[in-house]
Design a protein around this nucleic acid. Structure first.
Lengths: 140, 140
DNA sequence: GTTCCTGCAAAAGCTTTGCAGAAGA
DNA sequence: TCTTCTGCAAAGCTTTTGCAGGAAC
């Protein structure tokens, strides 16, 4: 199924989330943009199409989606939450120069720390920081 | 060398950080308490001994220490930065019930993602979330 | 004596909340 | 029609900043 309004309406419906124009647009945006946007990014981008969209709606909607497991929070930096649609396990690399976040594949099954043998693990996160290839090349 | 005032003075001195009563106390506290405290935790604990200590001094000092690589920030949750003295690589597990953070050992050398082959990696972080052994046992 | 640290208060940023009106089913 | 979502403004929190007085050497 391609990325149509119907598809996103269906996803929300199956999660028991009531439909609205705003919610569908926000879900659509995150599904089609894997740039790990902040709430502010989401707002300013969608405002181009939906000028009345408000910041509080964005925050409320993002939190609704996170509770429904449609989105994932990325908290690499303390002063900004980033969001992504892709729920599949992968790691994140944040470039300390340009700020861009890159995904990378990782086998999460290799983590079975002895110390956590009797713990219930719900969520595994891996993030690296450093300088990305393109900043190294440009010697910025 | 045991954890004496002289030892912490020496550490600061070697990093080129000017000495002060507050700085030594804060470093001492973090070196002796591996509970991953927030800035607020550090403030309220050290205030018992140093009642005039202010929040801004705590923040400024913690940031000074991070720049000097004496401390490490842990950003698992977006709304709270936690600090730890231990620079050695290890993972963190945060219990979603009781909020406690547990350390676990991890071999960071196993992470060599293909996608990051030409990247410069400065920092590797791994954190899990879930329910800890003791909350599972107490069925809280 | 000079440097720069501390502590107070105020400012800054991001996120959440309260509430009236509007949209959705 | 009834529920609940949206958008505005205000509040809440954590962290940062400006500045005068004080500590360190």
């Amino acid at each position: 199924m391609e990325n149509t309004i119907e598809r996103f309406s269906d996803i929300l419906d199956k999660k028991g989330i009531k439909l609205s124009h705003q919610r569908i647009k926000i879900l659509e945006y995150l599904a089609n943009h894997s740039c790990h946007p902040t709430a502010e990014n989401v707002l300013s981008e969608i405002k181009k199409e939906l000028p009345t969209l408000s910041k509080s709606t964005v925050y409320k909607t993002l939190n609704t989606f996170i509770e429904a497991n449609l989105l994932r929070e990325i908290t690499i930096e303390d002063n900004e939450i980033r969001y992504e649609y892709n729920i599949a396990d992968h790691g994140h690399f944040k470039c300390e120069k340009c700020g861009k976040i890159y995904d990378f594949n990782i086998d999460f099954d290799i983590f079975q720390p002895k110390e956590l043998r009797s713990f219930k693990i719900n969520d595994k996160n891996v993030y690296f920081k450093g300088i990305c290839k393109s900043c190294l090349a440009n010697n910025i």
